[in-house]
Each structure stands twice: as C-alpha cells, then as structure tokens.
Design a protein around this nucleic acid. Structure first.
Length: 187
DNA sequence: CGCATTTGACCAGCGC
DNA sequence: GCGCTGGTCAAATGCG
C-alpha cells in the first residue's frame, strides 16, 4: 500500500511548525480530566492529495479506545501536475470542534459531506505568507470524534501562548504505538 | 472600524 | 457527457 506513516512529520529543517509541539505532546501525555474530555488520539500522514474517501465508513472499528483508522486513497491518475502537499490527519475525541493549537485560523468555508450529518469546516492560517490549511470534521458515526486534517506546514513560529494548547494536550492520550493495519479499507 | 465568520455560488475532478 | 462531490471564493453579515 501507500506509505502512510503514523504519527507526525519529522521534517529536518523546519523547526517551527507542528512537529515540535507534537513531540512536546508526547512527552506530556497525561490522562484526561476536564470538560473537553479528550481521550483518544491518532495521527497519521497522508501522502498525496485528493480524496480522503469515506472516512466515516471504516472509522468505526474501535469505538472503545477512540483510535480509529481511515482510508486515504489518492493517487492522481494522469495530471500529477498538481502540487500535492502532504496532509496530516488527526482524530481526537473531543466535545469541541476547535482544537486550539496556538495558530490563528480563519475559516473560509464549510461544506456538508456525504455520509456525515456534520459539516466539514475549512480553515486557513492567517499568518502572512503561510498558507497552511486545515479541515475539521466530526464523525456522524461517532460524534465524539473530531478529525482534523492539516495541509502544509507553518513557516512561522506559533503565534500565541500555547498554554491553552498544553491544556488540551494534557487531556490527550497519544497512541503513538498504534500498529497500523492499513490496507484498502474501502467499502 | 477592522477583522472573522457565514453562506451560497462557482469550479474542477472523478465515476458512471 | 453528465451529475455528484469536495474544495475555494467572495460578498454580506456579525462582533469586539
């Protein structure tokens, strides 16, 4: 199958985007305790672009521990011209849709998605010259689960105190040892 | 008043 | 070729 590496990007030279904070997360992982009740976490990386198909369909297999998997079928057929940025998808169990990661995001769209009663929201990083995007979507099958997909990487340091971010992190459990069983999980 | 959000329209890719 | 779906744009609106 394609190369879906679990966990986070580890780009060598950019020091100020997600990964430093994410690794920070891992060292800080604590169990949940507050009202946001995040108790599941999964990070994965999408290589390529286009179509994350049917997220809602297979992401139902492990409702107990909150870790789920979803299929990323992409592979530009012909064009290949399109610059395909890697995308990094995270699933979190959260009551809130907006996970404040310390960056400022401006919402630029919202769409209803098929097989999902919740809309997907599209955000862009407001920092000048930084065109990182993210999508946030709640699963209809398991409405405690929020999928956040990051696209691109930040070219600037975090914009505000990440106290809140850490606060959230403190409520997360990171399943770093999650053994991937990706295949074509298509339906 | 400036900035963020909302929301419908528009567009492109893909499957049938 | 057509219709469906996902993604983006931009005008209108709301809020601090």
């Amino acid at each position: 199958m394609d190369n879906y590496s679990i966990l986070f990007p580890s780009q060598p030279s950019s020091s100020s985007y997600l990964s430093p904070h994410l690794s920070h997360m891992q060292s800080n992982m604590v169990t949940s305790q507050a009202d946001t009740s995040l108790n599941g976490y999964l990070g994965m990386r999408e290589e390529g672009y286009k179509k994350v198909s049917a997220i809602t369909q297979q992401s139902h297999q492990n409702p107990s521990n909150g870790t789920q998997q979803f299929d990323v079928k992409n592979e530009k057929k012909k064009g290949l011209k399109k610059e395909r940025k890697p995308r990094y998808a995270f699933q979190t169990r959260s009551q809130v849709d907006i996970l404040d990661d310390g960056y400022r995001w401006r919402k630029y769209g919202q769409k209803a998605v098929k097989n999902n009663k919740f809309p997907r929201s599209y955000y862009r990083c407001t920092h000048q010259g930084c065109n990182v995007k993210k999508q946030v979507q709640r699963l209809s099958k398991d409405e405690g689960v929020v999928v956040t997909t990051y696209e691109g990487m930040h070219t600037h340091p975090i914009e505000k105190s990440n106290d809140n971010f850490e606060h959230i992190l403190n409520q997360m459990q990171i399943y770093s040892g999650f053994a991937p069983s990706f295949g074509s999980v298509t339906h």
